[in-house]
């Protein structure tokens, strides 16, 4: 497998265009990371203003997606890239879709945070949500780092991490169901908590997807919908 090297083209402009595309994906990633961070902070600290600000700022993520998408189409049309360049473009187009979804989930969490801020707060101030949120945030950071460094090792570990997030989500749902059975009046609030946890769990899935694109981009093989353990075994051989 040829390693990805953006400097190996005869046309300097083409090098620059690909490099710019990669940079703008990471800029978008940075924006989404900040949005998610603020959304989680808003839920944990009960800051409704911050939550609404997150919801309001989602348009920036959307604009970036459209912009990068257009640039990708332009490069495809004018340069007709092949091999690793083509994989890079394809991976970018898919990555930004997932990033945009992460942005949407963050918007949703921000909105839920502003709603939850108006209700009574449990004594543990949503400790489980904070833990799940930090876990997912770390996954998003690792995914973007893997994308920046073309580090498949890190990408594989994020893909594995997603199972833990699913487990944590499962536990929160169970806990929420218990709360609702104990106290019927809390249902409205706990439902919102469940939605927030659900959004976080979805973000974990999107991070996993992004890492799969990174693996595709670098190694040229598609690891979606397959058992990651098989690949680990294959790689060790």
């Amino acid at each position: 497998m040829q390693p990805i090297d953006l400097t190996g083209h005869i046309s300097k402009r083409f090098n620059k265009e690909l490099e710019e595309l990669r940079n703008s994906v990471l800029t978008m990633g940075g924006l989404v990371e900040t949005q998610l961070n603020s959304a989680i902070a808003a839920i944990v600290s009960g800051d409704s203003e911050l939550g609404l600000a997150v919801a309001r700022d989602d348009y920036k993520v959307n604009n970036l997606e459209v912009e990068i998408d257009e640039e990708c189409s332009r490069v495809l049309a004018t340069r007709a890239p092949a091999a690793s360049d083509l994989r890079l473009i394809v991976a970018i187009i898919k990555t930004i879709t997932d990033l945009e979804r992460v942005g949407d989930e963050a918007e949703k969490i921000g909105f839920l945070a502003s709603k939850l801020a108006a209700m009574d707060r449990p004594s543990d101030s949503y400790r489980e949500l904070r833990s799940l949120g930090n876990h997912v945030l770390q996954m998003l950071k690792d995914a973007m780092d893997a994308f920046a460094r073309l580090d498949t090792e890190a990408a594989y570990s994020v893909v594995r991490e997603d199972e833990l997030v699913d487990g944590e989500y499962e536990a929160i749902t169970r806990q929420c169901v218990t709360f609702m059975m104990e106290d019927v009046r809390s249902i409205k609030r706990v439902m919102n908590v469940t939605w927030a946890a659900r959004a976080l769990e979805r973000i974990g899935d999107h991070c996993k997807n992004i890492c799969e694109y990174v693996i595709y981009m670098v190694e040229g093989r598609d690891v979606r919908h397959t058992d990651i353990a098989d690949h680990d075994a294959a790689r060790e051989e």
Binding site: R22, T27, G30, E33, T34, M144, A148
Partner: peptide, 23 residues
């Protein structure tokens, strides 16, 4: 800030520290 000496050589700095304020 998580800069890795050898691995990150040639990488744009705001690809590693991706805070929008810094960009």
């Amino acid at each position: 800030a998580g800069f890795r000496g050898r691995q990150d050589r040639g990488q744009r700095v705001d690809n590693i520290v991706r805070d929008p304020a810094f960009t």
